[in-house]
Design a protein around this nucleic acid. Structure first.
Length: 113
DNA sequence: TACGTGACGTAGG
DNA sequence: TCCTACGCCACGT
């Protein structure tokens, strides 16, 4: 797998697009799936650049603790939470409740191979 | 061209 | 178990 910067961003977008409604994943999970070493930060950066991208549910990507760390980067600080709640998730204190239950691991769902 | 910053994660104390 | 420090890469100034 090539790790060109454009591919990294594109891969992140594609994986995020594959996240089914009502599910969430973490930066590290995506990074690990696309083969990024410490790409957790890169995934976050890709998300930052995904604002102009359509079909990229960045609100379904949270940190390892299930915390909505990127909510401030949305149009409204509450938009991320609103969207997640709209999909049936429960957000409390900017944190996803039952995060483990709704966690969507690309390496597991899409296959590591 | 060079320095600083950032939507994170892991390791060590 | 909780807190602090470091690493990594790309982008903006």
């Amino acid at each position: 797998m090539k790790t060109n910067k454009e591919n990294i961003f594109d891969l992140v977008y594609q994986v995020v697009k594959l996240i089914p409604p009502g599910r969430v994943t973490s930066y590290g999970a995506i990074a690990q799936y696309i083969g990024l070493k410490s790409g957790a930060r890169m995934v976050g950066y890709a998300m930052n650049a995904s604002h102009g991208q359509t079909g990229v549910p960045a609100h379904r990507v949270v940190n390892r603790n299930g915390l909505l760390t990127g909510k401030h980067h949305f149009a409204s600080p509450t938009e991320m939470q609103e969207r997640l709640e709209r999909e049936g998730l429960v957000i409390k204190e900017d944190q996803i409740q039952d995060f483990k239950v709704h966690f969507w691991d690309p390496s597991l769902e899409l296959g590591i191979d």
